[in-house]
Design a protein around this nucleic acid. Sequence first.
DNA 1: CGTTAGCACTCGAACTTTTTGAGTGCTAAT
DNA 2: ATTAGCACTCAAAAAGTTCGAGTGCTAACG
Lengths: 344, 344
Amino acid sequence: MEDQLSDRSKRILEAVIEDYIATAEPVGSRTLTRSHSLELSPATVRNVMSDLEEMGLLVSPHTSAGRIPTDKAYRLYVNSILEVKKNLPQGNRDEIRRRCRMAGKDLGDVLKETSRLLSSTSSYMGVVMAPRLAANVFHQMEFVKLGSHRILAILVSQNGTVQNRLLEIQEEIPQEELVRMANYLNGMLQGLTIAQVRERLVAEMQSEKVRYDSMMTKALTLSEQTIRSDGAEIFLEGQANILDQPEFCDAGKMREIFRAFEKKSLLLDLLDRSMQAEGVQIFIGAESRLLKMEGMSLVTSTYMTGKDTFGVLGVIGPTRMGYGRVIPIVDYTAKLISRLLETE
Amino acid sequence: MEDQLSDRSKRILEAVIEDYIATAEPVGSRTLTRSHSLELSPATVRNVMSDLEEMGLLVSPHTSAGRIPTDKAYRLYVNSILEVKKNLPQGNRDEIRRRCRMAGKDLGDVLKETSRLLSSTSSYMGVVMAPRLAANVFHQMEFVKLGSHRILAILVSQNGTVQNRLLEIQEEIPQEELVRMANYLNGMLQGLTIAQVRERLVAEMQSEKVRYDSMMTKALTLSEQTIRSDGAEIFLEGQANILDQPEFCDAGKMREIFRAFEKKSLLLDLLDRSMQAEGVQIFIGAESRLLKMEGMSLVTSTYMTGKDTFGVLGVIGPTRMGYGRVIPIVDYTAKLISRLLETE
DNA sequence: CGTTAGCACTCGAACTTTTTGAGTGCTAAT
DNA sequence: ATTAGCACTCAAAAAGTTCGAGTGCTAACG
C-alpha cells in the first residue's frame, strides 16, 4: 500500500490537484502541460495519469473528460506532497489579530466571532465548538430569585463560561436561604470539574448526614438540576459561502447540505472525535462518514480555554479546498484564541 | 384609488392568488375554470383578468403565459378578501402547545425553540427577536470575580433575560467589596427599565455626593460598562425551508438571500419597525424595501415578556405564501409565548 | 348588454439534432 | 522512455422542432 510514487508522478498529481482546486473542472493532459510548466508532452502526462488512475488516485467522470482527484489522492497530497506554509501571509495574520481583540464579551460571543472570522478568512464555513461543559472547572454558582416559584441558577466555570438555567420550584425559598445554599455549594465544589461535580452531588445526596437536613437537600437538588444536560454549543458561520462553490450550485445538493447542518448532531460527533488528538486534523470527504454527504472536508484544530479544557474549531469546505491556505489559518487561529482565552 | 371591485372580480382574483400560491406557476383562464368551480367560461374569466391586469393587480411574464398576482394584489387579498381562520387546526395547536412546554431553559433557549417551531409549522423561516434590552426591567446585578483583573458581571432582567459581560479592570477589587457594590446598585436601580438605569447611572456619576466615594464610583463605572450596548438578538431558523420554494431554486437568488440574512441588520430594522404596532402585521414583497430582495414577505406579531416589554416574532416566506395558514400560526404562537413568559 | 364560442396568433418549455472541442488510447517514430 | 500523430468518444453548447397553454379579438347568442 505504500505507494511508490516517482517524483515525477507526484509532481503531476500535485499539478492535477491544484488545477482542480482552482477550477473545479476535470483536468486533462493538455491543459496541465499548458498551465504548469512541466517539461513534458501531453502524451507523457497522459501515461502517468493513466497509472495514477490505476492506483485509485484519479478518476474520470466519463471517457472523454479530464480526470478528478479521489479522496485518496487528497489524503496523499495533504500527507506527503503539500508543504504547509508555516507562515500565514501577513495580511491574514493581521486580520485575525485585529478581529481577535474583543474584550468585554463573554465566551459565547468570542467563539461566535471566531467562527465568523474563520469563515471569512477561509471563504468556506467556520465552525467552533465550545468546550464541553463536563470538562470545565467549576468556579461558582449563584441562585437568583425571579418570582415566588422561579429561580435563576447561574453556573460559572473558571474559563468564563456562564450557564443560566431557569428552575421551577414547588415551595418558596427565601433569598437568604438561597445565598446560604450557594455558599455551602461553592465551598464544597470548588475546583472540581463539572463531571466531578456531578458525581459528588449524587454521592452527597445519598449520604446519611445530608438526608435529614432539608436545606442541604434542596441545595443539592437545585444544583443537580442546574448542571444537568451538557448541550455542547456549536457555532457555524458562513454557510452562504458554500453556495459559491460550483459543485454545490445545484439546488438539490444545497438543500441536502443545509438540512444536514440544521441538526448539528452529526457535526458534533465529528468535532468530538477530532478532539481526541491535539493539533490540526484533516478529514477528507467520505473518511468522516458522518458528513456522509459527499464532497465535504473538514480541517480542525483543538484550542485551549484553560489548564485542560479544550474545544475544537475548524473550517468546513468542499473536498476540493485550498488546504495549503486553510491549514495555516486554522492553526494560527486556534493558537491565537487559546492565548486569548487563557486564564493566566 | 378605492378599487371598486365587483364581487365576481374579487372571486376571480382570489382564485388566481390561491392557484398561484399552490403551484407557483402563472395561472391562465383555462386552468382556473377547471380547478375552481366558477360558473364561468374561460373567455369571461379572460376579460376579467384583463381588467385586473389594467388595475395593476396581475401581470403576465410574457404574452402567452398565464398571470401572476402583484404585491398590490396580495395586499388587497390579505386586507379584504382573505378571511383568516380564527381557529388554527387542532393539529397545529397541539404541536405548538406541546413544543412550548419547555421549562428549565432560559429565555434565549425558549426563543430559539420558538423560532424553530414557527419554521416547522409554517414550513417557511421562523424568526424571533428578543425584547430589546433597553425596555426590560432591571431586576438584579451580580459581580463574580474570575481572576485578579477580571470580573464577570451578570445582569438579570425581570423577564428572565440574563446578560453576561466580562469586564477587565485595572486594580483588584476584593470579593466583599463586589458584593457591597452589587447591593448598593440593586437597591438603587430596582424596578427601573434598563434605559432608565442607563440615565440614572450617568446622572449619579456626576452627582457631587458620589464623586468622592471611590467605591461608588467604581460600582457605577462597572455597571455602566455592563449595560452598555444593546445588541438585540435575532433567532432565525429554518433557512433550509426556503430552498424548497421553486422560485428560489436557482443558485444565484439563493445566494443573495442567504447573504442578506447573514448580516441581520436589515432584518432587525424591519422587525423593529413592526414593533410599532401591536398584533399581527404583514409586510408584502417590496413594501418593506428593507428586504429588498424581491419576492419575500413577512408576517409578524408582537409578544409580551412582562408588563410592557415586548419582542417580535414571525414568519418569513415567499410573497406567494399561504397567508391564510401562516397568519393564525403566528398569532397563536405569539399569544402562547406571551402567556408562557409572563412573569405572573 | 354581458357572456360565450371560435379562431388565429404567440412564445416559452421540452425535445431532437448538429456541431464543437477537449479529452482519451493506441501505435509508430524519435 | 518520450512524443507526434491519428482515430475515436462524448458532454456540452447551439440550432432547430414541436407542442400546448395562453392570449386577444370578433361575431354570435340569450
